[in-house]
Design a protein around this nucleic acid. Structure first.
Lengths: 243, 243
DNA sequence: GAATCCACCC
DNA sequence: GAATCAGCGC
């Protein structure tokens, strides 16, 4: 996300009382993290899970994923597991909201930008649609494309801890020269891999993909409902029969 | 100027009855030329003098200045003199209009684009202000900047005929490679040579220059008026004295 | 926000 | 028209 203030997340993370943040910013918080609404959401749902500044870490170590991964491995992993637990809570809340607002649930991604534009570590938790009025530029889109490489899935980061130490060392460097060019890649639909020549065309296509998914998933939900109705009917019939 | 139809001037130039053109397009015409309003005026006054297609020239020879200057020298010069005569009539009419509408007169430029964007030779006759809502791009501005080089003053073209034949040959080639880069030059005020970093700033500055000129020239006109009033007064006094 | 680039349509 | 560039305020 972009803003005049690149360190606003750090300010949030240092607050002793996160609850003092307005509800338009703060979604939830715990002892270890806080979750805020992304001010420029790039999907229908888009939240950020941010680690609060507490021992054994200082603000510099929590600056970004790169700085975190330079810390003692077990500590870094523990912190990421904490973010993961919180993100999974958030995910459940988003899913409930999806159902309430849209009548179906869809995928949710959790991950980090390889090169973040805002200071202080923040885990993106966003719905798998990339449909949003704030999605305007190629770099916006590619930065969240789940197969482009710039968006690093949380599960991938966690897997690095179990990999060969030399792999961990290499991959945790997150070199700018390696990741920045990814933002210039051709636009392609993250869902069907089709190439789209520009943002307006991509956005229309993503909307079509979402509408298609919506139709399919709502039909699925409807079938489920009917099936459980039928079951209820059958069982009540059986109850009657048993009478 | 720009338009979907690059050959519209040729169509005008081939009309047997130019008077059939609407008055919003046609300003005036003669046996040899017609004068039209530039559809995208780049100054307060901006007209185009266009040679009609008539012997000894065909449409290809009248395609642009370059093609004309490849023709027999005396014929080419004669045609340009014809345009010049017409342009000077137009100039007088513009000046009268300047005075009526603005209360003063200012300079008028006559010249050709080195690389025209429309087919068929057309002589620009425009007021020396470059103040117009249609003036939007750097290339628009530089193409009329009187010292940039892309705008070739009619008087310069006419002077080539009297220069050394090798100079005539070289200069009449109007090489794209030589003239096109001029359109990318830094923006500078044609009047005070100050550099301006972008078009909005340039346009504000040009407007200020025009307003300053307007104040100065209107004051000058006013002093003239007073002076001639005074003279009239004096002479009428003298007349009275003579009574 | 402004300059530049590029692809589409004429 | 859309992608890119660049100056400027925070």
């Amino acid at each position: 996300m972009s803003s005049a203030n690149m360190t606003i997340f750090r300010a949030y993370a240092q607050k002793s009382n996160p609850a003092s943040l307005p509800p338009s910013i703060l979604f939830s918080h715990s002892e270890t993290c806080l979750t805020v609404f992304d001010a420029f959401p790039k999907s229908i749902f888009h939240l950020l899970v941010i680690p609060r500044v507490r021992p054994p870490f200082n603000v510099y170590q929590l600056a970004n994923l790169r700085s975190l991964l330079k810390c003692e491995k077990n500590c870094a992993k523990e912190l990421l597991m904490g973010l993961s637990r919180e993100a999974n809570n958030v995910k459940k809340m988003i899913e409930s909201e999806m159902f309430k607002k849209y009548g179906f649930k869809w995928e949710i991604w959790m991950g980090f930008h390889a090169i973040p534009s805002m200071e202080h570590l923040h885990l993106h938790v966003l719905s798998a649609d990339l449909c949003s009025p704030r999605m305007k530029l190629k770099k916006h889109y590619n930065s969240f494309h789940p197969k482009c490489g710039f968006f690093i899935h949380l599960s991938d980061v966690l897997s690095w801890f179990d990999a060969d130490p030399s792999y961990y060392k290499t991959t945790s460097q997150l070199k700018k020269s390696e990741y920045e060019p990814l933002l210039k890649e051709d636009l392609s639909c993250w869902k069907c891999d089709r190439n789209l020549s520009n943002m307006p065309k991509l956005k229309s296509h993503l909307q079509e993909e979402f509408d298609k998914l919506s139709d399919q998933e709502k039909a699925k939900v409807e079938r489920e409902r009917k099936r459980s109705d039928d079951l209820a009917q059958t069982s009540s019939s059986q109850i009657s029969l048993n009478d």
